[in-house]
Amino acid sequence: MSLDAHLVVRRESFTLDATLTAGAGEVVALLGPNGAGKTTALRALAGLIGLDGGHISLDGHRVEKVPPEHRHIGVVFQDYLLFPHLSALDNVAFGPRCRGVAKTESRVRAADQLARVGLSEHVRKKPRQLSGGQAQRVALARALATDPQLLLLDEPLAALDARTRLDTRAHLRGHLAGHAGPTVLVTHDPLDAMMLADRLVIIEDGRVVQTGDAASVTSQPRTDYVARLVGLNLYRGQCVDTRAGIAGGFALTVRSPVTGDVFVAFPPSAVALYPERPEGSPRNTWPATVTAVARHGDALRVELAGPIAVAADITPAAAVQLALEPGSRVWASVKATEVSAYPAATNV
């Protein structure tokens, strides 16, 4: 089982044009900011909105014209949409019933499915009597009860509080691993995406801007959005050997030689700040002005203006020593070994 889709959906203010593939058993996360078109893509895959172009193939069969009730997909909606008038059991049995399975048999299957998600105790409960985590599991059981060829999840953890989220994420991960077909997961939370998915597809403004596994995406972001997500300073530039020109004559020395159009990235923790120009010296040194200081975990995140906008993480002790406040003038420096450069031209 595999998914091969090219989704084109035109709206007044926005066009989704995205290619998406997922192999059998593979979990693909659609990650992107709000309004990027993630949910539109998911609804198009489910058949709840039509395509204006492109195609959707499931296992080699074109299904873009097939109505949702005949598409054999399972969907876990963002707020689950459990039918409020039906018990957990009947919610899960709903799918098999609609697919022509006899009533008793449907209920047996539903009970079995609920047992698998650990909810045997709660089969008789109505959705409003379930906790958020339980409701999420019922929704998952309901989507899986029809043995879908393709499983779709829309922000499956977004409605949960932080603690429940942790448990549910681990639980969900186990179930996704057990699903034989492809899974597409929509989220705006990078942690969910990285924990649950084998591969990330980053969507911005209706386009796929980057794909890859968690490691390659986090180490080599290709847009400001991804860079911010993974907490890197990111610039576009021209590189000759190890010297990367970024903007207005400013250049950084990078770890390893590349030539051509590149992305240049380094983590905020690699940036060191000095009151005076440091002597002896790393080559990447420049004067900067503090624009903001804020807590960031155990460190302080300092936003700097200058030839390039940079975020730097420093210890509170260092901040006191430097007497940092907005408007302070400092020298910033970053070791060449911390600065990575990678070609920007690669097709996504």
Binding site: L48, F77, C98, R99
Partner: peptide, 23 residues
């Protein structure tokens, strides 16, 4: 809710009868 029913295989009529009408 009708969309959810559709993804579970319910025809429009089934979705209306078993989901919308009770709601």
């Amino acid at each position: 809710y009708e969309e959810a029913a559709a993804t579970l295989g319910a025809s429009r009529w089934t979705a209306f009868r078993r989901v919308t009408l009770p709601l």
